[in-house]
Design a protein around this nucleic acid. Sequence first.
DNA 1: TCAGTTCTATAGCGCTCGCTCAAAAACCGG
DNA 2: CCGGTTTTTGAGCGAGCGCTATAGAACTGA
Lengths: 205, 205
Amino acid sequence: MMARPKSFDEDKVLDAAIDCFSRNGLKSASIRDLADEMGIAGPSLYNAYGCKRALFVKALARYADAAVRAKLAALERAHPAPGAIAAFFAETISDALAGPEARGCMIVNTAMEADPRDAELSALVSGYLGEIQEFFVRNLTAARAASLIPGDLDIEDASRLFVGLLLGLGVLARARPERALLEATVRPALALLETAPRSRRRGLS
Amino acid sequence: MMARPKSFDEDKVLDAAIDCFSRNGLKSASIRDLADEMGIAGPSLYNAYGCKRALFVKALARYADAAVRAKLAALERAHPAPGAIAAFFAETISDALAGPEARGCMIVNTAMEADPRDAELSALVSGYLGEIQEFFVRNLTAARAASLIPGDLDIEDASRLFVGLLLGLGVLARARPERALLEATVRPALALLETAPRSRRRGLS
DNA sequence: TCAGTTCTATAGCGCTCGCTCAAAAACCGG
DNA sequence: CCGGTTTTTGAGCGAGCGCTATAGAACTGA
């Protein structure tokens, strides 16, 4: 039997939850905040998702899929290797500076907020970070095959540096959301991809 | 008049507060948690510090002074430029992995947790990060004067990269506290400091 | 000794939290 | 239309939160 259908669009309320969680985090986003922004009442939220944490996991999964994976795929389509890497950071910086609100990347936020002994969230975060790292590895591997990056650059290590830098940008963008600063932070890392002669442009105090 | 003296050692209780805040953050560390770990009762805490936030600011200041500044100074004393930079990251990684608890660097934690519109905490975090950046700048400047790093390396940008990487390590160490992974993340950034011939050692899958 | 001052300790205030119960409302199949 | 199922709704529970009122304990100066 079908009975009464839900009165809200599941994707839209999940997007609202993503927004609320991104701004406040899992712990600080209250059920009442969430329900308000999602446009539904508390008990409906519980009826649909069970508990706050389950809602968070669903929102995180949707964020990873709709925001992260889609972005990575689009960048790989639009830029020949290794250009997608620089484009990725440029877009990440623009995203971090978009809007007056302190949104931040939900994956970075979760990595910081989750207790490392929380096996479920830790595994999710590790998995998502691994996907991002693989994006870097794919790009670097293709670039090396075309001799577009230095031959002695260790792809595995470099991709880890980029992941670490991505996380650092997420933190830095909260403390100091200034475009020039964030771009300067990324620049030396991208210089690693330049083939000799090493032309690392100076810039910006 | 002097009246009844305090029955606790202010430094010791502040250290306990640093520990509690480092593990739980400003918002999640409750007054009862703090009071318990500090070994004093709630009202004594309020009598001594006024409010939770003021206690946090005092604890953060002590952390920055006793943990960060002292560490930077010791490294600069112990290592000729630019070796202090690599030593700094090595020590940071070891610190992050020390103990089963999820302590994390209080400055990184605060940078993530504080609302960017919170002027006081944002300014404190920016200031502390600036001090760390200056440590990198000093080291790089001295190293350049001795021709120990590539001459075309932009010192300002590189020091920002190191700060960003430090923040990233703080996040990554929570999600994946594995020494080999953290070291591999730092390695390509330190390779920027090597003078030609560029020998970036491969390593670690 | 004892008034004066400061610190400590018990209890608890008002509030928000995650979550739930009971009843009303909306929809389906027949 | 109606029985059955699900969703929505308003109210509220117990717990924990930051913080404090109040009273007693500890110490100083005189």
